[in-house]
Computed example of a mutant assay.
Amino acid sequence: MIVTTKAIVISSLRYAEADLIVSCFTEVDGMKSYMLRNILKSKKGKLRTSFFQPLSQLELIANHKNKGTLEYIKEAKIVYPYQTLHSDVLKSSLVMFCSEILKSTIKEEEPNPQLFQFLSYAFQWLDLHETYANFHILFLLKLSQYLGFYPDDSNVDYPYFNIQEGSFEKQFNDHFSEEGPEVEALKQFFNQDFSTFSEIKLQKQTRTATLNLLLNYYHYHSQGFKTPKSLAVLQQLFN
């Protein structure tokens, strides 16, 4: 079936000498993977390699057979040209981190328009703003809501955060209970959005510990989750 859909590029992998396998999160059909034949050699085709950088926001005309096989893109165009996301070194590290997170957590070939709108807005926000040191922490927290395991913050004043239960607790229960500066930092991100979170000020060690806390939380709640390879680079640049 030929579809026209917005899409966010998640990853691309070189295949053979001139082909790319590109994974995209589409607005109409969720995650899709496409075979782009000879794109690395072609200079006159409708598809350009530059279109398929991680997190690029595109409009696709594609053939979706929906049989779990590689699909085919007929046409593509950029619908939101980023100004800084792929050229700024710090933002580029966040791009790689976020794309790895999404590749590890979004598996379904089914529409999730609320998640799509969240991602589209988040990356456009990052592109346009210059204060974003804690972006990845808020991004992970908000993403968990769309993935179905947002923490229960009804007892957010309690000192312990149970990463298995995803809730705050008054007393230490087992080895899943976490406490300390990273838990107190995490509490600050609840009820925040991208227009207000820049007011949160964290020391370098606390930011790293809070990020690791959220990644451990993802390990318990997202099947097959893998720690991003870009994490080390990200932490080095933001520290």
Rank of each mutant, 00 (worst) to 15 (best):
N212P: 12
Q145M: 02
N216R: 13
Q203V: 07
Q117T: 10
S92F: 14
N63C: 11
T84L: 15
G30V: 04
E182C: 14
K201T: 09
L143D: 01
C24G: 01
V156W: 15
L231G: 03
L58E: 02
G45P: 07
S11F: 04
F176C: 04
F176N: 11
V9H: 04
Q171D: 12
E109G: 11
I163K: 04
S56W: 10
P159V: 03
K44G: 08
L119D: 01
T208D: 11
E100P: 05
L55T: 03
S167K: 12
M96A: 11
E178H: 15
S154M: 07
F225A: 07
L147M: 02
M31N: 07
E179W: 12
M1S: 12
K6T: 05
C24D: 00
F194M: 08
L20D: 01
L143P: 01
S177M: 08
V183W: 03
K6R: 13
F123I: 05
L36T: 04
Y72A: 01
S12D: 13
F190P: 02
Y160M: 11
D29I: 03
N38S: 15
T131A: 09
Q205K: 13
Q223L: 09
N134C: 13
A209E: 13
L13H: 12
F116C: 01
L143I: 04
F149P: 00
K229G: 10
Q117P: 01
L13W: 06
V9F: 06
F194Q: 05
E178K: 15
D174F: 14
L36V: 03
P54W: 01
H221L: 07
G180T: 09
P113K: 05
S104A: 09
E165S: 08
V95G: 00
K201Q: 14
L141H: 00
Y15G: 06
Q145G: 13
R207D: 00
L140H: 00
T227I: 05
F25K: 02
L237K: 11
I78W: 12
Y82V: 02
L58W: 11
K226S: 15
I61L: 15
Q188H: 07
Y217E: 04
K41P: 05
I137H: 03
G30T: 01
Q114N: 14
D88R: 02
A122P: 06
F118Q: 06
K43W: 12
V9C: 07
N162A: 01
S50Y: 06
T49C: 14
T84C: 15
A7D: 02
K43P: 10
F116P: 00
H175P: 12
S93E: 09
L231I: 00
T208Y: 10
V89T: 12
I39K: 00
K77V: 07
H175K: 13
I2C: 10
R207A: 09
P181N: 15
Y160I: 06
K226Q: 15
K32Y: 05
L13S: 14
T196M: 06
K170W: 06
F172C: 04
L55E: 00
L20P: 01
Y72R: 10
D153M: 08
L40S: 03
E108D: 08
E108R: 08
I8K: 02
L36F: 06
L47Q: 09
Q235A: 06
